[in-house]
Design a protein around this nucleic acid. Structure first.
Lengths: 218, 218
DNA sequence: CAGTGGTCTAGACCACGTG
DNA sequence: ACGTGGTCTAGACCACTGC
């Protein structure tokens, strides 16, 4: 929405905790109804850019309070590099994978497996394993890993559930992550489901704690 | 909002993916304007109870898709018990704590430290350490641990940032959590700040992975 | 073509904080 | 008394879906 962008421009040089103009004044000055301005402000509040104090006014948040969730999205402006470790279209898969993807008859379903390593500023950040039911994706996307594996693309029309599991780094990945064999790490296990609750992607991410900060704002 | 509750009642016996009445029909039947009904539905969509399909309709979500975040809130209907391990009002604290609470002159600030153990269904689920700047809380609440330490109470007017750290269980807590000395765990470190960015609580939660599932829906 | 959700308008009243 | 955000109303037009 244009109103939102305008407000964002106008506050970008404001100091933290500075008040912004009231909803009524903004709506008049920007030529929109109050409800429209309100919705724009509400979205900025949702992102942590602004905050309201009931019956007092709306204020600019300190930048450190902007909402983030690096358990799911890599923070921007980092230098990321993706290295493919493994790619195959397989008929069979682990029992765990079949269970998470709710597959009863494994013969009838084609599963794509992709394993890749992610480097951040040239250092190993994580290893990701993806299991994707082929029939759920466009044939033309099958080889576009960047699109296929960017979980952001699924967020709008799907539901993603992820779990955090502490473990000792798996032996096969220790060297890849440049970790000692007894290093404790956090594995993230996630499932992507359609809104009608059909799972079609299962993923496991092994994070290098020295490179990957898992944090979120609430 | 009453409209929200009414809708919630009406759909509670509906099957997953069943359509609900359109916004226009609901607004007429419930005697509210369309925008009011819309807002109610929007909140239910936010919670994952309903989902929309653009230009098609609004549908009931499968219960497994309701949004949750057990990294922050213990799921309901669990039998929780809190055991106080430690409570003191101390002038001095670790450098780490002072740093997180943004305290320069440690002599002038009184910090409350509380350590407690949480049992879920009689089994040890986690150990929590809280560091609270005394001047930020009501004197009358100083001894009401349940209120003081329920992070939900701070969510409305504050910003909470938390970080997930993999580690081997600290020796001093291994027995308390009923874990072996080399068990990998996830420690959650969090800071509660006012909306004007003043930190006043720092907490560390050591989770027993066998009892505590850390997961979230996106 | 009728119905859906998505967006927007131009008003209105309320409770409460501040001067 | 005035200004704030919070809530609500009764309309309106749009782009698209499904029949």
């Amino acid at each position: 929405m244009q109103i939102k962008e305008k407000i964002q421009e106008e506050i970008q040089n404001e100091e933290a905790n500075a008040p912004i103009e009231s909803e009524r004044i903004l709506s008049e000055r920007l030529g929109a109804s109050r409800m429209t301005v309100r919705k724009a402000i509400e979205e900025l509040v949702e992102e942590g850019v602004l905050y309201r104090e009931d019956k007092k006014g709306t204020f600019v948040s300190d930048r450190s309070l902007w909402k983030k969730n690096t358990t799911f999205i890599n923070s921007e402006d980092t230098d990321l590099e993706y290295r493919l470790i493994n790619f195959d279209i397989k008929i069979s898969a682990d029992k765990e994978v079949l269970e998470q993807l709710n597959i009863k008859d494994s013969d009838s379903v084609s599963i794509i497996r992709i394993v890749r390593k992610i480097l951040e500023n040239k250092k190993p950040q994580s290893v990701e394993e993806f299991y994707i039911i082929r029939s759920f994706i466009d044939d033309k996307d099958t080889n576009k890993f960047n699109k296929l594996l960017d979980l952001n693309n699924y967020l709008k029309d799907n539901i993603i559930t992820q779990k955090f599991v502490p473990m000792i780094v798996p032996t096969k990945y220790a060297a890849m992550l440049n970790l000692s064999l007894d290093a404790p790490i956090i594995k993230i296990e996630g499932v992507v489901k359609t809104k009608s609750a059909e799972p079609f992607i299962y993923y496991k991410i092994y994070n290098n704690p020295e490179q990957k900060n898992l944090e979120m704002t609430l």
